[in-house]
Amino acid sequence: MSINRQKTALVTGASSGIGYATAIELSKRGYQVYAGARRLEPMELLKKYGIMPIQLDVSSIKSVIEARDKINEETGGYLDVLYNNAGQSCTFPSLDVTDEVFKQCYEVNVFGPMRMVREFRKLIINAKGVIGFTGSLSALLPFPFSSVYSSTKAAIHQYASTLALEMKPFGVRVVNIVTGGVSTNIADTRPLPEGSIYSVEGMKEAMKERQQMAVRNKPMDADKYAKQVVDDFERIGWFTLFSNVYRGSQTVLVRFVSILPRGLLEWGLIRKFLLTNVFQTIREKYSKTKIE
């Protein structure tokens, strides 16, 4: 990073939660911060920290290019931190999720970050900067009714890992933050669709337990999380050997649980999310009834 210019950062999904808190933390450390989100209104208060809110929809190439051109012109072609944080939740049974829902989830969680990296590559390389991603513990465990969301995060984990290798000759670091519980409002509260094959007694309670998983497991405060993440972006030395870091609550527990035998792991998840009776009811129902 050049000492003759102010450091710059772009945070996507900055209208609330992790993105909002990280934009503030970067600003406090002297960065000129661009806070991107689809809606500008929730980011108005960021201006008091000297942060510049910009309209940015990572699922739109037109929006991404407009943001890139603006930042390129105003920074002289440098971006020290690109934090791909924008995310779309999706808590649905695999058998119920619609094309519209899973396409949107992939657009925001996977294709959006890929699009951002490609379009901002020159600015990041010029700065020999850092590219960050908000990964998830959901990529490590088969949390029920999270197949779409978990698969997007697994895709980003592997994308970030390979990108880290490819960016080495340019002097650019890649940091994937495998995120546990953080106090945000990302939880998906949509009910099961009408006519779901899972609509049996007890399923409503099981879905509620799954949707409130993060809230009920002592999530880390977003401000504390943001401080750790910015530390990760600024750390040098031995840290550059690794592209994955683990932040948020329950990360140690989940990493341990993820290596358990599959049968034991599934048994534990079924019990935790109140699915024992639900699954038994479904087995009994469809062992006697043809699905029409």
Rank of each mutant, 00 (worst) to 15 (best):
residue 78 Y to R: 11
residue 96 D to N: 08
residue 91 T to F: 15
residue 96 D to Q: 07
residue 92 F to K: 09
residue 101 V to Y: 01
residue 84 N to R: 10
residue 86 A to E: 00
residue 80 D to V: 00
residue 95 L to E: 15
residue 85 N to L: 06
residue 101 V to L: 06
residue 90 C to A: 11
residue 86 A to H: 04
residue 88 Q to L: 12
residue 95 L to A: 15
residue 100 E to H: 08
residue 93 P to T: 01
residue 101 V to Q: 06
residue 87 G to I: 13
residue 96 D to L: 05
residue 97 V to G: 09
residue 83 Y to S: 12
residue 83 Y to K: 05
residue 96 D to T: 04
residue 108 V to F: 01
residue 99 D to P: 08
residue 85 N to H: 06
residue 105 C to Y: 02
residue 106 Y to T: 15
residue 83 Y to V: 07
residue 81 V to L: 12
residue 107 E to N: 15
residue 101 V to K: 02
residue 90 C to T: 12
residue 86 A to D: 01
residue 82 L to Q: 11
residue 96 D to Y: 07
residue 105 C to K: 02
residue 82 L to R: 10
residue 78 Y to N: 12
residue 104 Q to N: 11
residue 94 S to R: 00
residue 103 K to S: 04
residue 105 C to W: 01
residue 106 Y to D: 02
residue 108 V to C: 02
residue 96 D to A: 03
residue 86 A to F: 05
residue 80 D to L: 10
residue 101 V to D: 05
residue 105 C to I: 03
residue 90 C to R: 10
residue 96 D to P: 15
residue 84 N to E: 00
residue 87 G to N: 12
residue 78 Y to F: 15
residue 88 Q to R: 15
residue 81 V to K: 08
residue 100 E to A: 11
residue 105 C to P: 01
residue 108 V to K: 01
residue 79 L to M: 07
residue 104 Q to A: 08
residue 92 F to S: 08
residue 92 F to A: 06
residue 102 F to L: 05
residue 94 S to N: 09
residue 81 V to W: 02
residue 81 V to I: 08
residue 98 T to H: 05
residue 83 Y to L: 13
residue 79 L to T: 00
residue 93 P to N: 12
residue 92 F to L: 07
residue 83 Y to F: 14
residue 89 S to M: 14
residue 97 V to A: 06
residue 98 T to S: 14
residue 91 T to P: 04
residue 90 C to P: 02
residue 95 L to V: 00
residue 107 E to A: 14
residue 97 V to I: 14
residue 103 K to A: 00
residue 79 L to W: 11
residue 90 C to D: 03
residue 96 D to E: 06
residue 97 V to N: 04
residue 103 K to P: 01
residue 91 T to C: 14
residue 100 E to S: 09
residue 89 S to L: 06
residue 97 V to E: 00
residue 102 F to H: 12
residue 93 P to D: 05
residue 105 C to F: 00
residue 101 V to T: 15
residue 79 L to C: 09
residue 88 Q to W: 13
residue 78 Y to I: 00
residue 87 G to V: 15
residue 95 L to W: 03
residue 103 K to H: 06
residue 83 Y to R: 09
residue 99 D to L: 06
residue 102 F to R: 01
residue 98 T to W: 01
residue 103 K to D: 00
residue 82 L to E: 08
residue 107 E to G: 13
